[in-house]
Amino acid sequence: MRTTLLYFLLSLVCTPALAQQDPSGGHDIRLIVRADDMGAAQAVNEACIQAHRDGIVTSVEVLVPGPWFLDAVRLIKENPDVDVGVHLALTSEWQRIKWRPLTHAPSLVDTDGYFRPMTKQEPGFPPDTGFVDAHPKLDEVERELRAQIETAQRHLGKQVSHVSAHMLAARATPELQALTERLAREYGLRMEDDGVKYAGNFGSNTSTPEHREEALVELLERLPPGDWFIVEHPAFDTPEMRGFGHKGYERVAADRAGVTRAYLSSRVREVIDRRGIELVGFPAIASNPLSR
């Protein structure tokens, strides 16, 4: 949803546009392929793992407060080669499926005790639906993020290599950014973009499955040398997933099934093999960064 747009906006500040870089050479290109939101639904868990086993996904991001977290743990343990990020959650965006903090955190929740749906108050949304606008207390945020990291590490051990921010909420202000960076260092984890650059979106939540696949092929064809990452949200189009949605994003199941298709695409795999793109997780980048 909005996460990929936010990463795109971040990339405009941090990274020159791919079109302005030299795409020649086809060597020394390393790519982290992320699959976000494991723990949100069974259809998400299954799609993320299949996209790792049979597709190009190298890193899965886990929502520890998510209702299907323990199922995600089971699947991840069955695939010990997959890299894992703690997808730090301070928001719960869907209208009909919600999650709550692991800790007592009154400033982080709405009147029903759920995380607020949006990182910032969105036009057309009801009052008190923006996390930042509710002035969360930093000590409550810290306790909650610690609990999520410690729970993930307790269940998944050294498979957890980094932290990422669901809807970028844990990085939405300078104070939150500093807190998240400090906690990552304390727990021996990397930040999601340490040493890597965001390669860009492939399509959007209005794209057809065919366009998603084509857009990923095009992105990979022009990827220059360096360390890169892409982010998307695989799922299967199931009755469960058709219950997911919110104002402005109603076709979640169909859209995320298109992401799964792109991650499993033989056309995408052909480009990766032909160009010599190395699919890696965060530990490979940490241990052997490309020098540019």
Rank of each mutant, 00 (worst) to 15 (best):
R2E: 07
L6Q: 14
L9H: 14
S11W: 04
L12I: 09
T15A: 08
Q21R: 15
P23H: 06
S24K: 12
D28V: 01
R34Y: 06
A35I: 03
M38I: 10
A43Q: 06
V44I: 15
V44L: 10
V44Y: 14
C48G: 07
C48P: 06
Q50W: 04
A51P: 04
T58P: 06
V60L: 08
E61W: 06
V64E: 07
F69D: 03
L70K: 10
L70M: 12
L75V: 06
K77V: 06
E78F: 09
E78W: 06
N79P: 08
D81C: 09
L88Y: 00
L88V: 06
S92D: 03
W94K: 04
R96K: 13
K98A: 07
W99M: 02
T103N: 05
A105S: 05
S107W: 02
L108R: 04
T111W: 05
G113K: 10
M118E: 02
T119S: 13
P123D: 10
G124E: 13
P126S: 02
T129Q: 13
G130E: 05
V132D: 01
P136G: 09
K137I: 05
L138V: 10
E142M: 05
R143K: 11
E144K: 01
L145P: 00
T151S: 09
T151E: 10
A152V: 01
G157N: 13
K158S: 13
H162I: 07
A165N: 13
P174K: 14
P174S: 14
Q177A: 14
E181I: 05
E181L: 05
E181Q: 10
E186D: 07
E192A: 13
A199D: 03
G203D: 08
S207A: 01
P209H: 14
E214D: 11
L219A: 10
L219C: 03
L219S: 06
L223Y: 03
P224G: 11
G226S: 07
F229D: 00
V231H: 09
P234K: 03
A235E: 04
P239N: 08
E240Q: 15
G243L: 02
G243Y: 00
F244W: 01
K247A: 09
E250D: 15
E250K: 13
R256T: 03
G258T: 09
S265Q: 12
S265V: 13
S265H: 12
S266D: 12
S266M: 13
R269H: 13
R269N: 12
R269V: 02
E270F: 09
D273N: 09
R275P: 00
I277Y: 08
L279W: 08
V280Q: 11
N288P: 07
L290C: 14
